[in-house]
Design a protein around this nucleic acid. Structure first.
Lengths: 201, 201
DNA sequence: CGAAATATTGCGCGCCGCGCAAAAAGTCTG
DNA sequence: CAGACTTTTTGCGCGGCGCGCAATATTTCG
């Protein structure tokens, strides 16, 4: 990779990180594009060569997670059932103790109205890549077969629901177990509602 | 309901429809808020009392679908299994031949970058209402039990994937059968990839 | 090095979201 | 219906944004 491309990647990352940091510190509404550009060391005009809005920049962090999940998936042993491989690949992205920083970030991205749209767009992108990975693994293609996209969408949704539940859980739950529960429920088949700790009656 | 509230609803609907119509005719990028307001018979300033962007107005159509699905769900016989009730309630919203108009509308909302975010936000809202309906039906609540949200998310995702597949299908597929296939796959349990017409090898 | 390719920057324009306060419209009570 | 109230609409104005354009700087390649 030449100097040119490296600098572009660096600039993009710098802008994205700067956007996130400032948004975390002052709230997304109180961040000017001007500041982000300044913190990344480029002109305000250049910002828009990389992102078409500050919201996009803020949510672009973690878009590289898509490639990590995909890579993890393709490295799972071929004899492992698809579903196991997918669940494992997703879960291992969330290993380690979630720090206060991450909680605040996820909460901001998922709850702040001005970021929701972009956040969901980012999720959709991740979902697409995951679907491609699944298709590659089982030897189909996305265009003709809905199955990979369905699996990817289900996993993505379960992850989203679990994170949302985790964020609002009182008392605070564990992230990994919440995620696992959601994915396992899905795997077990949703039609049979699992009886849980808090049954209705 | 007093005159006041009726007028508000009417104004909101008028703005939303005007926004959609103009976006369909000229493309979302070429619509000014001014035009939308004019077509709805209010001042431009008033537009922003109802919607915070034209994208939001465009995607707000069909947000009432949420209530229809919910109502349909709650009217299903109580002895029917949840999953059947949900699938039926969703599918019956899509009965009838999809006209050319609808195809174009869905395609615009799902594919046009400037609308994707808002469209996904709208879906999330529908999903929330659906989850509440499910919770109400099985007698749980959303806060403590992830299950209703999981089901709602799964259904919503399957619907989205199916519509996307349907839009890009070549040759054109039937909407209802595509939707049914997606929802049934989910019901059957995703872990076992169903062997289909187009197996990979 | 020198030329071609590509990225950055400054400038400027039209549009947008929204706060504010005045005016208009609907509501309620006697 | 009068008149006081609540709520909505509207005009005005400001700061910010997204982007096209053309000039400039930087990287690439022969």
């Amino acid at each position: 990779m030449g100097l040119r491309e490296r600098k572009k990647l660096a600039a993009r990352a710098a802008l994205s990180w700067a956007a996130l940091r400032l948004a975390m510190e002052h709230g997304p509404e109180n961040v000017r594009v001007e500041q982000i550009a300044a913190e990344a060391g480029v002109s305000p005009r250049t910002f828009n060569n990389y992102f078409s809005s500050k919201e996009e920049a803020i949510c672009a962090i973690g878009l590289d997670r898509q490639e990590r999940v995909r890579a993890a998936l393709l490295e799972r042993p071929a004899e492992e059932p698809l579903w196991e491989a997918v669940i494992t690949s997703v879960l291992e992205q969330y290993e380690g103790e979630p720090d206060r920083e991450m909680v605040a970030r996820v909460r901001m991205q998922m709850c702040h109205p001005s970021l929701q749209g972009e956040h969901l767009k980012a999720r959709a992108e991740i979902e697409r890549v995951l679907a491609e990975g699944i298709a590659e693994r089982i030897g189909t293609d996305i265009r003709s077969d809905m199955y990979p996209s369905l699996v990817a969408a289900a996993v993505s949704s379960a992850t989203r629901v679990a994170m949302n539940h985790w964020l609002n859980s009182e008392p605070p739950a564990e992230l990994l177990s919440t995620l696992t529960e959601a994915l396992r429920s899905l795997a077990a088949g949703l039609p049979q509602p699992p009886r849980r700790k808090k049954p209705s009656c």
